[in-house]
Design a protein around this nucleic acid. Structure first.
Lengths: 151, 151
DNA sequence: GGAAAAGCGTGCGCAGCGCACGCTAATCTG
DNA sequence: CAGATTAGCGTGCGCTGCGCACGCTTTTCC
C-alpha cells in the first residue's frame, strides 16, 4: 500500500500546522486586546470561560499546563482586571480563578474573530460544502487521533 | 446573526487546537527517534525535506524561525548525523544544510506515523466521508484563513 | 575598486517553564 | 479527637530556548 486517505489528510494537515501554530493563531486573535492578553495568557482566559470558576491546579489539568504556570499567567490577567481570585467557600486551601465581565468580553471577542475569519475563508464555498466540512471536522476531532498525554 | 458555519467550525477547531498543539503532535511523532529529534528540531528536518538543500536563512524564512535558531537546531541534527553542512558552490558565503540518508529516513518515518494515526482515526468512517473530508480539508487549508505574518 | 549588503556563527540578556520549598488547610487514621 | 498525611497555594531558582547585536567573510552594486 503506497496510498491512503490518511496520507492525503496528512498532506493537508502539514501546511495547516505550519501556517497556524496555536501561538500564531492566538497571537492574531488577541491582537489589540491589551497588554495582558496574548498567546500565553489567552488559553487561561478561554479555559476559564469553558470550565467556570476553577482552581489553578484544576485549570492546569484542563489546559495541559503546570500549576505554577497557570498561577503566573493568572497574575497578569488579574492585574489587568480580566479575572479575579476568590476564596473557595467549600475549601479553605483553594483559591478560585474566575473571569470578570471584562474577561468574558475578551473571550467573546476572540471567538467572534475566529468565526469571522473562518466565515471569510468559506465565503466562496457552496453552503452545502461548508456545512459538510463543519460536520466532518467535528467528527474527526471527536474521534481524537491526537490525544495528548495529559488526557 | 447569532449562528454561522464559521461558528460551527470554530467550535470544532477549539478542541483540536487544545489537544494537538504542534509541540504535542511533533513530540508524539518523533518519539524514540533519537535524542536529536524532538518537537524543536523536527520542523528543520521536515522543512529541509520539502525544500531540498537550503541555507539557514532561507530555511528560517520557510518555516518561520529566526536564522540563528535554525543554525543551533541544525547543530544538534548535524551532530546526530541527520544533516550535513555543505559549502554552496555558487556562493562562498552560504552554507547549505542538506539531509543525510538517515535524516531522510526519519522524515519518512514520521510521515508514515502521521498518516497511520489519521487512518486509524478514520478506520470506522465510510470511505466516501473520509475522502470528502480529505478534499474539503485541503481546500480549506488552501484558502488560507490563518496565514501568519511571515508570509 | 571601494562601499553597501548578505551570508555565517556566537555571545548575551530576557522570558517562560517546571521543580522544590515552606506554608496553611483538609482529610485520613488509630 | 489528636497526630499524621495529603492537597492546595505562591515564590525562589536553575535551565532552556529565543532574538538581537556583534565581528567576520564574501558577494553585489555603483
Amino acid at each position: 500500500m503506497n496510498h491512503s486517505t490518511g496520507h492525503d489528510i496528512a498532506d493537508a494537515l502539514g501546511p495547516l500546522l505550519r501556517r497556524s501554530t496555536r501561538a500564531h493563531l492566538y497571537h492574531r486573535l488577541t491582537e489589540g486586546l491589551g497588554e495582558a492578553v496574548d498567546d500565553l495568557t489567552y488559553p487561561v482566559l478561554s479555559g476559564l470561560a469553558r470550565t467556570g470558576p476553577s482552581s489553578a491546579a484544576d485549570l492546569g489539568r484542563e489546559i495541559g499546563l503546570d500549576r505554577t504556570t497557570v498561577t503566573r499567567r493568572a497574575d497578569r490577567l488579574e492585574r489587568a482586571g480580566l479575572l479575579q481570585r476568590q476564596p473557595d467557600s467549600t475549601d479553605g486551601r483553594a483559591t478560585l480563578l474566575a473571569l470578570t465581565d471584562d474577561g468574558h468580553r475578551i473571550v467573546v471577542t476572540t471567538r467572534q474573530r475566529l468565526a469571522a475569519a473562518i466565515d471569510s475563508a468559506l465565503a466562496t464555498w457552496p453552503p452545502a460544502d461548508a456545512q459538510a466540512f463543519a460536520r466532518l471536522l467535528r467528527r474527526f476531532v471527536d474521534d481524537g487521533p491526537f490525544t495528548p498525554d495529559h488526557d
